[in-house]
Simulated assay, not measured.
Amino acid sequence: MIRVVVADDQELVRAGFATILSVQPDIEVVAEAGTGREAVAAVERHRPDVALLDIRMPGLDGIEAARLICADTGTRVIMLTTFDSDEYVFAALHAGASGFLLKDVRRDDLLHAVRVVHDGQSLLAPGVTRRLIDDVLAVHRREGRAHVRQVPGLDQLTDRERETLVLLGRGLSNAELAKALFVTENTVKTHVSNVLSKLGLRDRVQAVICAYESGLIAPGG
């Protein structure tokens, strides 16, 4: 059973998401919250597998709530917003979120997102990857930093694991990775797990950022 907390300051939106999720045989909505602080408290109390967090909530916003949840618990976070903004994508993913959905998401896509994130994967389509990387590079330019940074553990990766990291950085799914590397999806999962473990990364989202910030993928590459 996938245990979920739903947080949104709009009661009808929150109730709608909770209803869609709760009728699924493999999903249980254990709590609802109307503010960021309520969301953090609900996660601390119920320890759900997944938290759906609206980005814009009064007081403590969804991004700060995600930062606290991801730092202190094993709950995986999906951000919800009406704003298809690069800034929000960047901030949410750096806070530790594993997914990013617009509130007009289709029912089946919402259910898929919860299940995928619960399984330890992330929701990062190639288009979002491109916007995320543009934002990573923009932050470096604003702060006057060089693009490349040293990543602890990078020298511990095998050649195949480095190749896997590069392909992750380009937004490939497990099936696409398997095809590109001429291996099975089970082997891909092993490579991805090794990459995340050796680099101390939470999930594939952080691997994408790492691939660019480390210089393994050049801007526009």
Rank of each mutant, 00 (worst) to 15 (best):
R160H: 10
A138Q: 10
P126F: 05
V105W: 06
I133R: 09
D109L: 15
T158V: 11
V128I: 15
T187I: 14
K189Q: 13
L102H: 03
D119M: 13
P126M: 07
P126Y: 03
F100M: 07
K198W: 01
A178Y: 10
V195N: 00
A180Y: 06
I133P: 02
H191T: 10
D119P: 07
R160V: 15
L177T: 12
L168D: 02
D108C: 11
S98C: 08
L137K: 05
V116H: 11
L172I: 06
L124V: 14
A175L: 15
N186R: 12
L181E: 03
R160F: 07
R149V: 15
H191F: 14
V114I: 15
G169Q: 04
G120F: 05
H94P: 00
P126R: 07
L124W: 07
L199Q: 03
H94I: 03
L181H: 03
S122M: 11
G96K: 05
G120V: 10
E143H: 11
L110V: 13
P126S: 04
S193L: 10
K103Y: 05
D155E: 15
R106T: 13
H118Y: 13
R160T: 13
A125S: 11
S197Q: 12
D155P: 05
Q150W: 01
K189R: 15
L154I: 07
V148D: 06
G153P: 09
A178F: 12
A146H: 00
H118N: 14
S173V: 14
V117M: 11
D159F: 10
G169D: 02
L168F: 04
T187G: 02
V136H: 10
L172T: 04
A146L: 01
R141A: 14
G120I: 09
N174E: 15
R145M: 03
L102M: 07
H140K: 15
S197I: 09
A180V: 11
L181N: 04
L124Y: 07
K189N: 13
V166S: 01
V148A: 04
A180T: 11
D109A: 15
K103E: 05
D155C: 06
R115D: 11
V151G: 01
V192Y: 02
V192Q: 04
L177V: 14
V148H: 00
S193V: 08
L123C: 09
N186Q: 12
R160Q: 13
L167S: 01
E185P: 07
G171Q: 09
V166G: 00
R160P: 03
A125D: 13
V188L: 10
R170V: 00
V192L: 07
S193H: 11
R170Q: 10
G127Q: 14
G96T: 09
G153K: 03
E161L: 06
V128T: 14
G169L: 07
K198N: 01
G169I: 04
K198H: 02
L168E: 05
L123D: 06
